[in-house]
Every structure is written in structure tokens, then in C-alpha cells.
């Protein structure tokens, strides 16, 4: 929930831009250290963003871009993306934690990007899904790499009781859910896919997570509520 009271008003004043220099500096410092306050500021940025439609687009002179490039890149001559950053970005838990449901959905598309930078020799597909549900704060991001037959899961938010397990299911069309096993606890998890599942797992299949007794569903079908779900998108 957004922060209420003075903090929320201060957030509104900061976003509106009416504070003096000292107040803005203090507020900017608080933004770095107080996540609830930062969230309140972000909420106000979202609420007031429509006002920015009144800003005209005005083409800047060409020398501005040259000056930016000189400031950023004058010592690094070759403009190639760093090769190490893709992996660290994917595995950065802080990054995934920070995602809200809305941006997570947008990022399902954006995650295509690391793939664009892969060498082209592999024809195996990669798929991405963000798993979430209304009325549940459980969120996972899933990436399925057909080549290595593994699903990587990033646990973004949501907890379970000590005597419960999250179980991962694949739902293909109107068929009954197929268990992919209990999800081990941890922030970044990898689950190996059986060959028969691998044949069925493709774009459009739905991944779902249900809350089950410890050790997984005793019946082979989900017995508890589905706390997160999402469909696999080809990336």
C-alpha cells in the first residue's frame, strides 16, 4: 500500500516540483533510503504523468548528442555491449524483486533482448513467463531454454507456510495439469524438464504454481489454490 500522511503529501510536492532546493535535496536523499517513500513518489509520478502530454517535442541541436557521446564514451572507443552484463542482470535478484506486476509483464517482452545477442547457431527456442495472480503476492519469473531442457525460476515475491510447498504445473490447452515437481526454496532455481514434458512445452502453454502440502500434491493434480500463473511466450 502507498504511504499515507505527511510522507505521501511530501511525495506529491516533490513530484509536482514545488519544493525549494534544500527540501528537494533532503527528499532525494530520503528516496534512496526509504522504499515506502520511494513507492509513494512513484505513485504520484504515475498519477500526474498525463500532465506531461502538454510538453511539446522540440528537436535538440546535433551538437548535444556529440557532447553526450564525448562525456560517456570518449575513453571507450568500441561501442559494443558488455558481454558479462546479460547474465548478471538475469541473476540479479534485486532486479526481479523490484519488478511490479505491470513492469514484469512489459519485461516479458524485454527479456527477448539477451537472446538477440546470442550467437545465431542454436535453433532451440527460449520462452519466458511471468507467473502472478490476483489476490496473491506470489510472483515468479520463468525462463525455459529448450536447448538445455531447464526452467529457470526467479522467486520475486510471496511466501508460503513452513508446512507447505509450491508446486509447478504445466497446462496445455484444456488438458489436465501436469506436475513439474515441487519448487525448491531459493531465490534462483533451476528445474530440469523430463523428455515427455519437453515435447509438450511450447509457446502458449500455461505454467501455474499451486500451494500444496509439504512434498507436493498427494493426488497428482493441484489440491491447493493456484497462487501464480502465466503463459509461456516465445522470446
Amino acid at each position: 500500500m502507498p504511504e499515507r500522511g505527511d510522507g505521501d503529501l511530501l511525495a506529491a510536492e516533490y513530484v509536482l516540483g514545488v519544493l525549494d532546493q534544500k527540501e528537494r535535496e533532503d527528499t532525494a536523499r530520503r528516496l534512496e533510503t526509504d522504499p515506502a517513500f520511494a513507492r509513494a513518489v512513484d505513485n504520484w509520478e504515475v498519477s500526474l504523468a498525463p500532465l506531461a502530454g502538454a510538453y511539446a517535442s522540440i528537436e535538440p541541436p546535433a551538437h548535444v548528442k556529440r557532447a553526450i557521446d564525448a562525456r560517456l564514451f570518449s575513453s571507450t572507443a568500441i561501442p559494443t555491449p558488455s558481454t558479462a552484463s546479460g547474465g548478471s542482470w538475469w541473476s540479479s535478484l534485486a532486479f526481479w524483486r523490484g519488478l511490479t506486476a505491470a513492469t514484469a509483464a512489459a519485461l516479458a517482452i524485454a527479456v527477448a533482448v539477451p537472446v538477440l545477442r546470442q550467437p545465431a547457431e542454436t535453433t532451440d527456442a527460449r520462452y519466458m513467463a511471468t507467473l502472478a495472480a490476483e489476490a496473491s503476492d506470489v510472483r515468479y519469473a520463468a525462463m525455459y531454454d529448450q536447448h538445455d531442457g531447464k526452467i529457470a525460476l526467479a522467486h520475486i515475491s510471496g511466501a508460503k507456510a513452513a508446512d507447505q510447498d509450491f508446486e509447478l504445473w504445466m497446462i496445455e490447452g484444456t488438458n489436465a495439469p501436469v506436475s513439474m515437481g515441487v519448487i525448491p526454496s531459493g531465490e534462483m532455481i533451476s528445474i530440469r524438464i523430463t523428455p515427455e514434458l519437453k515435447a509438450k512445452l511450447a509457446a502458449g502453454a500455461v505454467l501455474a504454481i499451486s500451494l500444496e502440502p509439504l512434498g507436493g500434491s498427494p493426488t497428482g493434480q493441484p489440491t491447493g489454490p493456484v497462487v501464480a500463473a502465466g503463459d509461456l511466450k516465445s522470446i
Binding site: N43, E45, V46, A49, Y55, F95, G98, L99, A106
Partner: peptide
């Protein structure tokens, strides 16, 4: 990378940085 922790649309996030 801070964009990921905002609820803003991408262009609104850029406008917020500039503003």
C-alpha cells in the same frame, strides 16, 4: 536499471528523469 522498479510507462519514466 532503475526503470525496472518504477510503475511508470517507459516514456513517462524518461520524462520524470528529465523533469
Amino acid at each position: 536499471d532503475r526503470f525496472a522498479i518504477s510503475d511508470l510507462s517507459p516514456i513517462s519514466w524518461l520524462v520524470a528523469v528529465a523533469r
